[in-house]
Design a protein around this nucleic acid. Structure first.
Lengths: 122, 122
DNA sequence: CTAAATGCTCACATCGATGTCAGGGGCAAG
DNA sequence: CTTGCCCCTGACATCGATGTGAGCATTTAG
């Protein structure tokens, strides 16, 4: 498929797909005239990239973890593993932060409800 | 205390503290010459702002939820409550997304470990 | 009193993913 | 061949929180 169809299937803009390729997150085969061709596997890959981007990872980080441009080899795999573990830690503490924020929000909500209840008959 | 001390106590730059004020997140009393004065309560408030900012809320959203510039009144409180509930929902689905990302990462880690194990003796 | 430290405002710079526009090909159906 | 649609690259714009620096005022310590 060409880029328009991949974009339609994934919901990711053409612009972003080209950007992912430029950042080394996505490969494509090119027609002689330079047009990008993709197959079904790329749909999943784009979904994975979206998941990670939405989790606040930079494209550089994703590229480090998910080799796609280069031959896999052991030292590269070890480096990727290190990056993954680092990101896993970061992700977990981000999650903790969000949960803390949600708890703080819940307290604010309670305060607000109490205020509304007490002030109902002013 | 003046802005430098609040900055030191909270770990938030002077620049950011002024920005919070400009965005309506933080109030200060001013000396005749215009210098900002804070008291101990502001330390907590800044911490709360940081928590929410780190959770990806915009300063506009925080200002909506945490009235500080204006007299509290019922309609404003109701509006704040609506914003809080909206943000709580958003926060929960962000958390879900991060957890999904972490699970995807765990699968990648497993694949990588398997590769390293199988390739150990190439 | 003087110097150093701190404060003030204003304005411009930064980062990263994405939008958008311009100028130019590619390719199929009429 | 032409019309229409999709593709290409390259460049500039955007948003929000924060950094940075200039130029000037104020406060505090010696």
């Amino acid at each position: 498929m060409r880029i328009g169809e991949l974009s339609a299937r994934t919901g990711v803009s053409r612009r972003s797909l080209r950007y992912y390729e430029q950042q080394g997150l996505l490969v494509s085969t090119r027609s002689p005239s330079g047009q990008r061709y993709y197959d079904d596997d790329h749909v999943q890959r784009v979904a994975l990239i979206q998941t990670f981007l939405a989790a606040g990872m930079s494209s550089r980080t994703i590229a480090e973890m998910v080799p796609c441009m280069t031959e896999p080899n052991m030292s590269r795999a070890r480096q990727a593993l290190a990056a993954m573990n680092r990101e896993r830690t970061r992700l977990s503490s981000t999650i903790d932060g969000l949960i803390a924020a949600r708890e703080a929000l819940d307290r604010l909500i309670d305060v607000n409800r109490a205020y509304l209840a007490n002030t109902a008959d002013d």
